[in-house]
Design a protein around this nucleic acid. Structure first.
Lengths: 237, 237
DNA sequence: TATCATATTATGTCTATACTTATTTTGACC
DNA sequence: GGTCAAAATAAGTATAGACATAATATGATA
């Protein structure tokens, strides 16, 4: 968090991107300004146009530039930069923190999805699904309580898996690659069940993460994850 | 094969990426497998190696492939795919929902940062900063309560701005481009002040967003945003 | 003056080639 | 068998050239 290399200058394209970024941040090129075209920049920087193109693409992806054919490249007026959020497998997170990971399935049954689960998956609440509730522990202390619905129709071979003994998240990550995912953050006061599972008081504010994934065959799984009190999830860019 | 175009496959590189993604998702190439090298794929797909390289880079960025020089390209064992989180300007969010936006500064003073603010900015809590508290409304109802510290040393010309009348977030977005940002999500029970500002009860679970930005000159601003009860922030990929 | 077809232009994309770099293979040598 | 240096290899990156495409600028026409 503390080391902040101002110029990650490995590679000519990245060096050019860094220099252009500096000019924008230092307001040499102001918001809304048209910047020189790729051909000119290529001459200025002594690089091929393809290299300049790559550099400017990077900055456009960051949201710092807006590019349109023929119209040229402009510094974005409202530079909404995007942060990348990666949700690692909890086991790895816990183990990389030097703690021992464990995991306990609290309940498992076959049932039609709850109205909310069906809404998140964007389907009618009819077909039977696997309903799983589990707690993840680090060094014996509860870290996350998950309430998950799994659509057996979405992945072949799911019928033979006993999710009472297999970590559902990890199995799904490895065996049911999704094509689209949806993640939302919210907050909720712990209800009786949340409080019991996470060993905290009813009413404590919990960070709630809803995650739903889909593939060709439809929704794969939707899960509500309640994080232990005080937990933070961060993205850095 | 060729008549099946379900994905927006404009561009040869994107088409190749889509096809490789399909092979992975359909498990023709399994996790951990080494896939053919760029030169072979270039022949298979009838493309230049640079084009295949671009396609595979996309998938590596998505987290679906792991690439190492000389060692080749493998399907990721734990395909942790990344979601992109973009935090738009609240005014735009509210106005695009067809609501009227307004904004009220509750307090503004010059003071050394709180210990927590200093910690988030990674500095010693000494120099004077601007401390601002404001509420953002949509159709007169409170949407977010923000508690912000601004470092006047980080941006030239900040001294002349009266943040009582200017939207600090928008001014900063336009005038203090950052080079690094840090965003974390957490949850908190509304304290007396949160509850008053957001017109809710003490103890309600609130989604809290901490956001800190830096440039060359050091930290620009750090803000704690308390969202109205029930608010969700989502990312989709 | 307004409208529409045409030319122009900046970015988008692909290609072929070349060279660089990290890593693994190999093989000589002890 | 073990060690280490050299060869081989696959990705990383850059380049010049080419054509495609979308948007703008221009000029002819009504």
């Amino acid at each position: 968090m503390t080391d902040r290399t101002p110029a990650p200058t490995t590679g000519k394209a990245l060096a050019i991107a860094a220099e252009v970024r500096r000019r924008i941040v230092d307001r040499e090129w102001q918001q809304g300004d048209r910047i020189p075209d790729e051909a000119d920049l290529a001459i200025d920087f002594g690089a091929a146009r393809a290299t300049v193109n790559k550099a400017l693409q990077i900055l456009a992806d960051e949201g710092l530039l807006e590019r349109r054919r023929r119209a040229g490249t402009r510094v974005a007026v409202d530079p909404v930069r995007k942060a990348t959020l990666s949700i690692p497998i909890l086991r790895e997170q816990i183990e990389s923190a030097g703690m021992g990971y464990s995991h306990r399935v609290v309940a498992m049954q076959h049932a039609p999805p709850s109205p909310e689960a069906a809404r998140r998956m964007g389907i009618a609440p009819d077909g039977p699904m696997i309903h799983l509730r589990a707690v993840h522990y680090g060094d014996g202390k509860p870290f996350q309580y998950e309430d998950r619905w799994i659509n057996p129709a979405a992945v072949a071979g799911m019928g033979t898996v006993d999710f009472r003994h297999v970590n559902a998240n990890e199995w799904l990550v490895r065996n049911a690659l999704y094509q689209r995912a949806d993640v939302t953050f919210s907050a909720a006061n712990a209800d009786v069940r949340d409080a019991r599972m996470l060993q905290t008081r009813v009413g404590r504010a919990l960070l709630i993460l809803h995650r739903t994934t889909w593939n060709d065959a439809g929704p794969i799984t939707t899960v509500r994850i309640a994080c232990r009190p005080g937990h933070e999830i961060g993205t850095s860019d």
